[in-house]
């Protein structure tokens, strides 16, 4: 297959194994490969403990791969962090910083002056439904708002690829649905490229252009499914026949993987 432009991000043959001592080796990732086009939203699902977070840490430059490469725009960037903005599972908003100070943290760390960093973050508060909460502290915000602030902190860094590690995992299901539909809305207005880790199949289908299913450990890509649903997506779409079809396919693949991970 010949492509005119390289994908925004591409993982090639990523392997990761840990030494357990006594000469034992645990292989976590075994030849993980997938890519995302510019502006594409890719969701990654897999059995729990399959190494999704390790994969993210490698992408974010926090851990090194045993082998394999990561490419951004066709250039090898393995081990570099500056292309990725990372949003961890926990919101990790610091209680000693106001919401504005928390959201501008990444720019400040990158060497931007406080004034410029805060002005850039402040300009996004309206779009993230956080207007008026600039000087509030994290403990004064609801779970959903905290998660939006954490996403703002991720997005405002202006990195090329967003890495979202189960951003809504800790929210109650009502707030989670709200957040998904909100994210879907902001998404359609921006040209972000993102990789999302999730346990929630419906969340993956609803938000993503493509869903990558990882196998049980050691993980490799078991299925790479394009979600061909029009955007913007309404919540009512989640009850359509097409949606249910995707859900069945993903569920079947995942179940197969979960079963094989339990086998001796």
């Amino acid at each position: 297959m010949v492509e005119a432009t390289p994908p925004k991000i591409e993982l090639r043959g990523i392997c990761k194994s840990f030494l357990l001592g006594h000469g034992q080796v645990r292989s976590v990732l075994d030849d993980v490969a997938f890519s995302a086009q510019p502006g594409e939203f890719v969701a990654v699902i897999g059995p729990s403990g399959c190494g999704k977070s390790t994969m993210f840490n490698i992408m974010a430059g926090l851990e090194t791969a045993s082998s394999g490469e990561i490419l951004v725009d066709g250039d090898v960037v393995t081990g570099q962090h500056e292309h990725f903005a990372y949003m961890p599972q926990k919101d990790l908003l610091f209680p000693w910083r106001s919401i504005l100070e928390n959201t501008s943290l990444g720019l400040e760390v990158a060497g931007e002056t406080k004034k410029i960093a805060r002005a850039r973050a402040a300009s996004l508060f309206a779009a993230f439904g956080l207007s008026g909460f600039e000087d509030s502290h994290p403990f004064e915000l609801s779970g959903g708002m905290r998660q939006r602030a954490a996403l703002l902190r991720t997005v405002v860094q202006g990195r090329e690829v967003l890495l979202l590690d189960e951003p809504f995992g800790a929210l109650d299901s009502l707030t989670r649905t709200d957040m998904q539909s909100w994210l879907q809305g902001v998404w359609s207005q921006n040209a972000w490229t993102a990789v999302l880790i999730t346990h929630d199949i419906r969340e993956a289908i609803y938000l993503a252009d493509r869903v990558v299913v990882l196998s049980a450990r050691p993980a490799c890509v078991r299925l790479n499914l394009t979600i061909d649903l029009p955007r913007p997506r309404a919540l009512s779409m989640t009850t359509s026949a097409e949606f249910a079809g995707y859900e069945r396919t993903l569920l079947a693949t995942l179940h197969e993987e979960t079963r094989s991970s339990r086998a001796p």
Partner: peptide
């Protein structure tokens, strides 16, 4: 200090000194 907080700072490109100033020091107060 929360290890995940350190990782977040590292993903932002913070060196050891910045990790200390932005997270470890306030966490220890």
């Amino acid at each position: 200090t929360d290890r995940d907080a350190i990782n977040l700072l590292r993903s932002m490109g913070a060196n050891r000194w910045k990790q200390f100033v932005y997270v470890r020091l306030p966490s220890a107060l």
